[in-house]
């Protein structure tokens, strides 16, 4: 069961994973739109920001395409196997599914309240805010959950890459880390352009 949760790609890939993955990206964007949670790059989760559904969806599509495209190029260069476009893009789409949970967690306002509280207390920014110990505990638990969800998503993305490209061992880890960092930069840049074009 745990193996299937961290590496479902031994059982599902190709068109099936692409369809499910795209549906999950759509649902995540819709949920994020209503919970004011968005993903400005392939890893970051921001809460408490109101965006249009179009921007929310575009951000998620850019995040998926950024890492998929770079991993596909890396696979073509470094893999001895014949890598299929649909496997890599499909499994990467499905690997982003855990962020639906992150978007759902955004419905709780505790994280924002904690952020506002720290900003006011330590940086004197914003309105004077107080937070109860219960709310602070909830916020810490939710933040921990978001970290766990992020680790789960990265594990899925790595396993998706490994199965789709058949690159193993240290080589696959090194390629993935480099591409992951480049994808963060690329997706943040493109999403920033989208934000400035569509949201101002």
């Amino acid at each position: 069961m745990i193996r299937k949760l961290i590496n479902p790609f031994n059982y599902i890939a190709g068109a099936k994973s692409l369809l499910i993955g795209l549906a999950m990206i759509f649902i995540t964007s819709l949920t994020g739109y209503y919970s004011n949670t968005f993903f400005p790059d392939i890893l970051s989760v921001k809460t408490g920001v109101e965006l249009t559904f179009k921007v929310s969806l575009l951000f998620n599509i850019v995040n998926w395409l950024s890492i998929s495209l770079l991993l596909y190029i890396a696979s073509l260069i470094f893999s001895k196997s014949s890598v299929r476009f649909i496997d890599l893009f499909g499994t990467q789409a499905l690997a982003r599914s855990p962020y639906l949970l992150a978007a759902l967690l955004g419905f709780s306002k505790s994280i924002n309240r904690l952020g506002e509280y720290f900003l006011w207390k330590y940086l004197s920014i914003g309105e004077p805010t107080d937070i109860s110990s219960l709310e602070m505990t909830i916020a810490v638990v939710l933040l921990t959950l978001i970290v766990i969800i992020s680790i789960w998503m990265i594990t899925l993305m790595y396993n998706a890459f490994k199965v789709s490209s058949n690159i193993k061992g240290g080589k696959s880890v090194t390629i993935f880390i480099i591409v992951f960092i480049l994808s963060i930069i690329l997706s943040a840049f493109v999403n920033n352009l989208i934000f400035n074009t569509l949201h101002t």
Partner: peptide
């Protein structure tokens, strides 16, 4: 084998 296509391709490779 009830496995994904790339998994079987990797086994063959």
């Amino acid at each position: 084998l009830k496995l994904s296509y790339p998994t079987v391709r990797n086994m063959l490779d």
